[in-house]
Computed example of a mutant assay.
Amino acid sequence: MIIYTQATSDWELEQILSLQQENLPKNMSPQECEREGFLTVEHSMDILKAMNDECGHIIAVEDGKVIGYALCMHPKFAKEIEVLKPMFQQINTLLDTPNSSMAMGQICVAKSHRGQGVFRNLYLTMRNRLPEGFDTIITEVDGKNKKSLAAHAAIGFVTLKVYESDNREWHLVALK
Rank of each mutant, 00 (worst) to 15 (best):
Arg114Cys: 05
Val141Lys: 04
Glu132Trp: 12
Asp142Gly: 03
Ile107His: 01
Leu39Tyr: 03
His152Leu: 12
Glu82Asp: 08
Gly115Thr: 08
Asn99Gln: 13
Ala50Ser: 11
Met126Asp: 03
Ile47Asp: 06
Pro75Asp: 05
Ile58Phe: 10
His152Ile: 06
Lys26Tyr: 10
Gln106Asp: 14
Glu62Asn: 14
Glu132Gly: 04
Leu71Gln: 02
Lys49Phe: 09
Asn145Lys: 10
Val109Glu: 01
Phe38Tyr: 14
Asp46Gly: 14
Val173Asn: 04
Ser101Arg: 09
Gly68Pro: 04
Ile155Glu: 03
Lys161Trp: 05
Leu19Lys: 00
His171Trp: 07
Val41Phe: 08
Ala103Thr: 11
Asp142Phe: 13
Gln15Met: 06
Ile58Trp: 04
Ala50Leu: 10
Gln20Thr: 06
Met104His: 10
Lys76Thr: 13
Phe134Asp: 03
His171Lys: 12
His43Ser: 11
Ala60Glu: 03
Glu36Tyr: 07
Arg168Gln: 14
Ala110Ser: 14
Ala150Pro: 05
Thr40Gly: 01
Gly133Val: 13
Ala151Asn: 12
Ser9Arg: 10
Gly105Ile: 14
Leu124Asp: 07
Thr93Gln: 15
Thr159Phe: 13
Leu71Met: 12
Val158His: 09
Ile2Val: 15
Ile91Lys: 08
Ile2Pro: 15
Phe38Lys: 00
Lys76Met: 14
Ser100Gln: 15
Thr159His: 06
Phe134Leu: 07
Phe88Leu: 05
Glu36Gln: 13
Gly105Ser: 03
Cys108Gly: 06
Ser9Phe: 07
Gly117Met: 09
Phe88Pro: 01
Asp142Val: 11
Leu95Ala: 09
Pro131Lys: 12
Glu54Phe: 05
Met51Ile: 05
Ala174Gln: 11
Leu84Cys: 08
Leu124Ser: 08
Met126Gln: 07
Glu42Leu: 10
Cys55Pro: 05
Leu39Ile: 01
Asp46Arg: 11
Gln106Met: 15
Thr139Ser: 14
Glu140Lys: 08
Met73Gly: 00
Val109Ser: 01
Gly143Gln: 04
Gly64Ile: 02
Gly156Lys: 03
Val118Arg: 00
Tyr69Met: 02
Ala150Leu: 08
Ser112Met: 07
Gln90Met: 14
Ala110Gly: 09
Pro25Asp: 00
Asn23Gly: 01
Val173His: 03
Leu175Thr: 14
Asn92Asp: 15
Lys49Gly: 06
Phe77Asp: 02
Val173Leu: 07
Lys49Gln: 15
Gly133Lys: 10
Thr97Leu: 14
Ser165Leu: 04
Leu172His: 05
Glu164Leu: 12
Met28Tyr: 08
Gln20Val: 01
Lys146Ile: 11
Lys144Pro: 04
Arg129Val: 03
Glu34Ala: 04
Glu82Asn: 13
His113Phe: 13
Ile91His: 01
Gly105Ala: 02
Pro30Phe: 08
Phe88Met: 02
Arg120Gln: 15
Gly156Val: 04
Asn23Gln: 13
Ile59Val: 14
Gly37Trp: 06
Glu32Val: 11
Asn121Thr: 05
Leu71Ala: 02
